[in-house]
Nucleic acid binder design. Structure first.
Lengths: 128, 128, 128, 128
DNA sequence: GTGGTCTAGACCACT
DNA sequence: GTGGTCTAGACCACT
């Protein structure tokens, strides 16, 4: 499904979170689709199941997946994802990032066209 | 100059880095202007000079300041800030962020107008 | 593993960097092999762990090793060692050195045959 | 004549040494030619004369210049420059550098052709 | 047990 | 007075 990068200094559970999140955002994992079970993923990545569990727990808190006891974890359908705190947080991060890019003299047109592309790509995913 | 947030889980040196960087990016600290000396800042924040030193060293690696032994640390003049690795890194972070915002159905117009504002603000700083 | 030279004026962490680098370049430490842990090396050299940490951090920045929290530090596999900035830097140092040797009337054939030998030696290491 | 780089972490007197040495090696300063006086250079670089003095003293020790009291400092004619200790030192540095470049898979042909060029350039300087 | 952070404090080189 | 090095030692997060 994906690979861990041991050169990366972030903890393994953070990496797992990011990878799963990326799969959801990119549309590889669809709403209500089952994500791999903790044991399954632990085995395929050859790491401790506790590490996977921690990642899934945080993904649930952030609203990306929901767990059903004895069934597994599933992708939260999109209309549930309106998490205002998370949204505010992301917008704040965006501001910091853009300010830094502006300071580095990256032309704003480059950023805007990149955004257009990413939104276009997202739109297509939804129509699948 | 600024305050540390001891509730924040990120390491102190990271917080210091972010604060100094924000002062540079926002134009409060101008190119070639002296930033507080290691000891001075350590005293005013009542933390260990080693922690400041670490923050400054990383800011130097990222190209924001340069340190001169026996003289102090100074804001890198803007034309030196062309750090390709850092730029690539920031653009990658931007992509992740925007993808997530798109997934949350934030209208792209909101992002774009935010970017326009931030660039406009930066342009004004340069004219001071 | 190696010894420090307290007569040497260069800082201890620099000496440690050079020694580890030499072990990697000479093929004593193989790709993905574990280098001694920070504490282990500190104990065997009877110096402070912070000093080892600093040396390892710089070796990581230069691309020679990578550190994994809770696991240890490891030799970067060779294909990852393409660090353009470092390469440029070394080539520049080479130019300065060769110019000085030329000025001293060292015959260029001596330098070239020395280079041939060193490359031959490296080739053999790879075949181990 | 040249400029100091305050971004460079090496002490000012080291930088001055390197700059003067480069002028000698490149043939800009010819054998027995006068190098700028301590005061003159101190004034043009707006630094303390002691710093220049230290640089010149070390250049004299390494055999690049000689001082004549009340007259100034001059470039040592080339046949005096056979300083065996310095030579050995440079050859050792060359070995370290080449080993590192070999480890980085820089083709040896690149190094050799660079050396040929530098020697050719030196030969032309001598014929001026 | 591992690397990473931080404090407290000494001492050095350089200007 | 400045940044840089180093020690001694505590404590943390992660596996």
């Amino acid at each position: 499904m994906f690979q861990l990068d041991y050169m990366d200094h972030s903890p393994l559970y953070e990496q797992i979170k990011e990878k799963i999140k990326a799969l959801i955002i990119s549309g590889v994992l669809k709403p209500d689709e089952k994500v791999p079970s903790v044991r399954e993923l632990a085995q395929s990545l050859t790491i401790n199941p506790n590490t996977i569990h921690k990642a899934y727990k945080e993904l649930e808190l952030e609203g990306y997946i929901y767990s059903v006891r004895a069934k597994g974890s599933f992708v939260t359908p999109i209309y549930n994802k309106i998490n205002q705190a998370r949204k505010d947080n992301l917008l704040l991060e965006l501001e910091k990032l853009v300010s830094e890019l502006a300071y580095m003299n990256i032309p704003k047109e480059q950023l805007i066209s990149r955004i257009e592309e990413l939104y276009e790509r997202g739109r297509q995913k939804n129509n699948d």
